[in-house]
């Protein structure tokens, strides 16, 4: 049984000038998951995040942090328990990397040695060797390195929850993708509850366990990436996902998701198939295979490039299923 750590109950935020930033929003975030808020700019996604660490105060409704109404908690304590990452400007340029990373522990009055150890540990985790980087200033680093420092800083006091506001927004596409992958790996190790804001649906699909799609201050769909891709709630969501929705599905679903496990090749090894003279998925070069965790996009490319009717899905040496063009068609939402 998973428990929720952040709950929004009919939350509305209205600014003094009458602008309604978010209206009557309710959702729950499970502990240890990543929830992505995505939508066009000005839709209220950043406001939602700032309500959690009380950089903004809500107008009506209730927000619970670990079961407690956040207005009953001390603002300063609450913020020190929540990691906060924003675009690279968020680093303090006048401090060294180590001073940046050690900031929250400093505020929490840890002793010097403990802060130093923690800083070194985090820099190493972020692939920034401490002895090289701790005394540098943020301006001496590349955009990607700065962003890593930002993540390390947010992790410093080992918070349960991390708020990340377009953390990879200012990076070039290649660096962004690299950092996303690294971050997914790190997240698998640290197991934090993460609220993540982005305007990029691809990033949302990649990073999120759950995605909240915003429009004009309201959540139009709150679901798993798979549900959002295969069952968009309305035309807005469909349009937001984009005209390449099928490609996104292909890149999102794995061979394991769509494979046919009933084919008679399952359970055998490739050499056994070769010995039995099975022609399925074989061309001049041999059998075409994909790993269970590889995407359907890869499977489809292999099918087309290899001029075969389907590919074998393998796990180690063993064949665990098959994927054919027909399997793909059946599983992609348009084919239903």
């Amino acid at each position: 049984m998973t428990s929720t750590i952040i709950d929004f109950e009919n939350v509305t935020k209205e600014y003094p000038d009458g602008t309604v930033a978010i209206e009557d929003i309710s959702f729950s975030v499970e502990e240890g998951t990543t929830t992505v808020f995505v939508g066009p700019s000005g839709c209220g996604k950043t406001t939602t995040m700032k309500l959690v660490n009380r950089l903004e105060e809500l107008t009506s409704g209730k927000i619970y942090y670990d079961g407690q109404e956040i207005r009953s908690l001390d603002k300063i304590d609450l913020r020190r328990n929540i990691g906060y990452v924003i675009q690279e400007i968020g680093l303090f340029d006048h401090m060294t990397v180590a001073e940046n990373v050690g900031m929250v522990p400093t505020l929490l009055e840890w002793d010097r040695a403990r802060i130093d150890d923690r800083v070194d540990e985090l820099l190493d985790l972020m692939d920034l060797p401490a002895e090289t980087y701790r005394d540098q200033h943020p301006m001496e680093l590349s955009g990607g390195q700065r962003q890593r420092v930002g993540v390390a800083r947010a992790l410093a006091a080992d918070p349960d929850v991390m708020l990340m506001d377009e953390p990879f927004g200012a990076l070039d596409p290649i660096t962004r993708e690299k950092l996303q992958d690294e971050f997914l790996e790190i997240q698998a190790q640290i197991d934090k509850t993460i609220l993540f804001v982005t305007h990029d649906i691809d990033e949302a699909l990649k990073m999120g366990d759950k995605i909240a799609i915003y429009r004009n201050g309201q959540i139009v769909q709150y679901d798993t990436p798979k549900e959002i891709l295969t069952n968009p709630a309305n035309d807005f969501v469909r349009e937001f996902i984009g005209s390449d929705r099928l490609i996104k599905e292909l890149k999102f679903m794995t061979a394991g998701d769509v494979m046919d496990e009933t084919a008679d090749v399952t359970g055998k090894t490739l050499s056994e198939l070769g010995a039995a003279g099975v022609e399925f998925a074989r061309n001049g070069q041999g059998y075409l295979t994909v790993e269970r965790s590889e995407t359907t996009h890869v499977a489809l490319m292999k099918i087309y490039e290899g001029h075969v009717e389907g590919v074998l899905v393998t796990e180690g040496e063993e064949v665990v299923g098959t994927v054919t063009e027909a399997d793909l068609k059946r599983n992609l939402s348009e084919g239903r």
Partner: peptide
């Protein structure tokens, strides 16, 4: 942005 980050980190 810099002061807000400070605030968001829990600085008084």
């Amino acid at each position: 942005a810099q002061t807000e980050v400070g605030e968001g980190m829990g600085m008084t």
